[in-house]
């Protein structure tokens, strides 16, 4: 494992068992999460980004499984990494990581808490489970956490049921729960998608502050490039179970190289561009179903730079445009050669 990296995904394949047929959902992705950084995983719905994030904590639904690959994880740089992929799905090892060293926030704050248990009990449960503290200490810690994520009157909130919380409040509580044991990695699966724009901004603000304060690393799953710009350091763009381009956020935004990234970026409005009267474009066609995955580069039917006989026969190899920017596209095959030669 490289220096400064806490989590490393190597050639990860995930398949869906569909009536005995194996349908690939994620096809060999490689990712690295450096300590203290935010890695954004971006793609349209159904591209496999949520499934990838669930695979990291082995939370995959029953019919979905990791078919091959490695997920190497170490809580701190001086510990030796363990491979999460072959662990027992609900065994002791993975359970001691979940909620403790690596925790997760989900998309739907309204349904992420059990409606019939008190908020404080649901957060305190994680603390008691991993930190071996008394109930009273756990409760004090929950109140601290609720205060930290900006919930007013935490002394009272701790004894309330989720239905008396608004969506934004529940997402704050969810963040409190995920931070309860000072994890080294936080996985956030579209944490702001279901929220109003103003609340979205507040939640992002809290997450960014707490990340710095607690010196966490974060994997941030989203389809919203606006959110990426606000919070991420590194970006990986996914399309139909594969990473098509990755690099630092400024590099990807200013110098996108994959046709898919380019069209994603041109589909978001920018304030400064108003004078240019630049047209907002949408991507042609729609994401095909998993059963009709196009051969080769799955994006080719929607791509303007489609090279017949090439893109539809094989998936493009990695083109290392710069030490920090890599892309999978045949139009860059030669570019890489120029750099390397």
């Amino acid at each position: 494992m490289k220096k400064g990296v806490l989590l490393e995904i190597r050639d990860l394949h995930i398949t869906l068992d569909f009536d005995g047929d194996d349908i690939p959902i994620v096809q060999g992705i490689d990712l690295e999460l450096p300590a203290g950084k935010v890695l954004a995983l971006v793609g349209e719905s159904g591209c496999g980004k949520s499934i990838t994030s669930q695979a990291l904590l082995r939370l995959l639904p029953r019919e979905v499984r990791i078919s091959s690959g490695e997920i190497n994880f170490r809580p701190t740089e001086d510990q030796s990494p363990i491979d999460i992929a072959p662990l027992n799905k609900d065994g002791k090892e993975i359970r001691s990581i979940r909620g403790n060293q690596m925790s997760m926030i989900f998309q739907e704050p309204m349904s992420s808490f059990s409606p019939i248990h008190k908020i404080g009990d649901q957060i305190g449960e994680v603390i008691q489970l991993h930190l071996k503290v008394t109930k009273a200490e756990a409760r004090r810690r929950v109140i601290d956490l609720l205060d930290k994520v900006g919930i007013p009157d935490p002394e009272q909130a701790v004894d309330q049921y989720p239905h008396s919380f608004s969506g934004g409040m529940r997402q704050r509580a969810m963040i409190a729960k995920s931070l309860a044991c000072n994890p080294s990695i936080l996985i956030a699966d579209e944490p702001t998608t279901a929220l109003d724009v103003t609340i979205q901004a507040q939640i992002l603000e809290i997450m960014r502050n707490l990340k710095d304060e607690l010196r966490m690393s974060m994997i941030f799953i989203t389809h919203d490039l606006g959110v990426v710009a606000q919070i991420a350091d590194e970006v990986a763009i996914m399309y139909m179970g594969r990473i098509v381009e990755k690099g630092p956020v400024s590099e990807i935004f200013n110098n996108p190289q994959h046709p898919y990234t380019v069209s994603l970026l041109s589909a978001i409005p920018r304030l400064g561009d108003l004078s240019d009267r630049r047209k907002l474009t949408s991507i042609r066609g729609s994401v095909p179903s998993l059963f009709e995955r196009p051969p080769g580069c799955a994006f080719h039917p929607r791509c303007d730079s489609f090279i017949p006989g090439r893109c539809d026969t094989q998936f493009p190899p990695t083109s290392q445009l710069s030490p920090i920017h890599e892309v999978h596209c045949f139009i860059h095959e030669n570019t890489e050669k120029e750099i390397s030669s």
Binding site: S45, G46, S50, I51, E63, S289, F291
Partner: peptide, 10 residues
């Protein structure tokens, strides 16, 4: 979860 979005047709 995105799995459920898959139409269950063989």
């Amino acid at each position: 979860s995105p799995v459920l979005a898959i139409p269950k047709l063989k």
